[in-house]
Amino acid sequence: MNKIIRLLLVIGLAFTAVAGLQAQGKRKGTLNFYGWSEYIPQSVLDGFTAETGIKVNYETFSSGEEMLAKLLAGRGRYDLIQPSDYIAEALIQAGQLQALDLAKIPNLKNVLPEYLNMPHDPEQKFTVPYMIGTVGIVVNTEKVKEPVTGYADLFSEKHAGRIVVVDDGRELAVAALYSLGKNLNDFSPENLEAIRPILATWFGRVKLFDSDSPKTALLGGDVDLGLVWGGEAAILWNEDKKFQYVLPKEGAHMFVDLMAIPARARNVENAHLFIDYLLRPEVSKLISDEFPYTNPNGEARKLLSAEQLANPASYPKIDRKLDTFRHLGGDAGARIDALITDLKNAR
């Protein structure tokens, strides 16, 4: 008897909790936004709420894969997501995004044409660019006197123990592919075998892996060089001009972070309103002020200061077309992860 009562109590509690969550999602005037951590200023969210009365429920992730997993597991909870290019491509292929009503996003005209109709969304139907970033080499020029122009210089013997790299298996594997002159999206078993010894050597020379804030170790003087996100390098340059940023000569890619609406979003109207709000030049400028990535919004760039535009990590001088990540498919992701785990724990 007791057992049954207890069981019922447990089930009852669970239902109340679930019902509560659903009620929250259905309430009018909300927007469930799932975005990158450290990527949107609070002032922008507050500004949107002040103007429209729409409450933004902001939830964060720190890797695109984390977002993908959560989105696929808890369908329909999010109205707006912030996928990177290759994740968006996978979501589009899987039918997980809904086509945008571009008539409701007039500010899309502010976006520079080179950031539209890219390989991940060739018809520009599902996504709108948010910010652009690169992955490159940052060097403390006070400590490192000789020029560093590519992966070979960065990971050379003489910098052993003075290097920080992002803790991201695919980024590191891509760097190794570039150093062999191979295509960055070709993770065939042969290519994975080819990069294994290279990564093994590199990992032996790396002081630390840090995706969240690689700038910290550089600022603290614990390391002198790094393979980091452009935005991190831009903040370092703002802090001290001794931190120079360079795109590796063997090859470099950019990542385009996007705004997209999941297929099962509930507050679609609000999501469109928010996307259009973010594309306003003066709002987009606020984002650039706090997170100095490459702003794809041409009108917003006109509002930036000369110093912001001169930041080599935000607006690198690009003498070539930068590659982008594509959705890999198959078990390539799992094989990259296995390789990286293997190499990190080989010692």
Binding site: S63, E65, E66, A69, F203, V206, K207, T341, K344, N345
Partner: peptide, 15 residues
């Protein structure tokens, strides 16, 4: 640089 089992599990769920 050196993973413990907690890191490996964490990694399976986040990356």
């Amino acid at each position: 640089r050196v993973s413990m089992i907690g890191n490996v599990i964490h990694n399976q769920f986040t990356k």
